[in-house]
């Protein structure tokens, strides 16, 4: 039934995207990103203290979007499945011949399409505004940084769908999504291995931290994003609480960072499906 599964996945994705339009979620997200694209570029180009030609459009755009996107993705998409579950919509959907895998994958793909569209719109709106304001536009860097942002957005979409597939109420999902954002964006993530180092070192911090500590820190998707852009687009610098290392180890280099982000997508989807498959409606 592989063909049937594939066409049903396509149907589910189509209907999930249409649902976001019917519920005005798509309009809100796309509108917000268009606004951010306009506002960030316009305000950067209208600062009299800075020559617009010295401003890179992609750098101005990527930094706010890299913080805004995980927050919005987690906030909007954490309820994608759990709301259908509590409202009884999933009872209807799973009465039809959709597998639970189709539901999880279809939601991930549908919401990824939406957030990808939003990032593209922010960029597309920013280009003419930047051009009119005289901001420097490097097409390769702009496309490249947008693609990296899209990878980050899909990573957090997968995490949001995981939260939605494994919680029983929308309130719990919202709390879990907010906690996840704080852990990753504020790099609370780094405190977990730090505590292990502290405990294993007789309740004190060693002078030099073991290599595995930095390895675990690098598994934070926000850290992976930072390490990736720091190498490929040095103009962007770090985001939020995470700074790129001066002498990156292999796990702080772009290839590993991409693997970390893809790994999060794969793990979140696999684990979300596994938990969702065994759950009673």
């Amino acid at each position: 039934m592989a063909v049937g599964d594939g066409s049903r996945l396509g149907l589910y994705v189509r209907e999930d995207v249409r649902d976001t339009v019917r519920e005005r979620q798509a309009q809100v997200i796309l509108g917000l990103y268009a606004l951010v694209g306009f506002w960030v570029t316009n305000s950067a180009g209208s600062n009299p203290a800075v020559d617009p030609a010295e401003i890179d459009l992609f750098a101005k755009l990527a930094t706010p979007l890299a913080l805004l996107t995980p927050l919005l993705v987690l906030g909007f998409f954490c309820s994608s499945l759990v709301e259908k579950r509590t409202s009884g919509a999933l009872t209807v959907v799973l009465g039809l011949p959709f597998s639970r895998k189709t539901v999880v994958l279809g939601t991930l793909i549908g919401r990824s399409i939406l957030i990808t569209g939003a990032l593209v719109i922010a960029t597309v709106v920013a280009i003419p505004v930047g051009y009119l304001r005289g901001v420097s536009i490097d097409p390769v860097a702009l496309v490249g940084s947008t693609l990296v942002l899209i990878l980050l957005a899909i990573t957090f979409t997968a995490v949001a769908v995981l939260i939605s597939a494994t919680t029983r109420t929308a309130t719990r999902a919202t709390v879990a999504a907010f906690a996840t954002f704080v852990i990753f964006a504020a790099n609370i993530w780094a405190q977990f291995p730090r505590l292990v180092v502290y405990a294993s070192n007789g309740l004190s911090y060693p002078e030099t931290f073991p290599a595995w500590y930095d390895f675990v820190v690098a598994l934070n998707p926000m850290a992976a994003y930072t390490y990736l852009i720091a190498d490929v687009f040095p103009a962007l610098g770090g985001i939020g609480f995470i700074r790129p290392p001066q002498e990156p180890a292999f796990y702080e280099r772009p290839a590993f960072a991409v693997a970390v982000l893809l790994g999060w997508i794969a793990f979140a989807t696999w684990f979300g499906h596994r938990r969702f498959r065994g759950a009673d409606l």
């Binding site: 049937g4 649902d19 409202s87 209807v92």
Partner: peptide, 20 residues
């Protein structure tokens, strides 16, 4: 899934799928 291809369901505790 193979079973549900042949089943029509009027379930208990259902709700609308989105704003359709």
């Amino acid at each position: 899934v193979a079973a549900r291809e042949r089943i029509g369901v009027l379930p208990d505790g259902y709700g609308p799928i989105g704003e359709r």
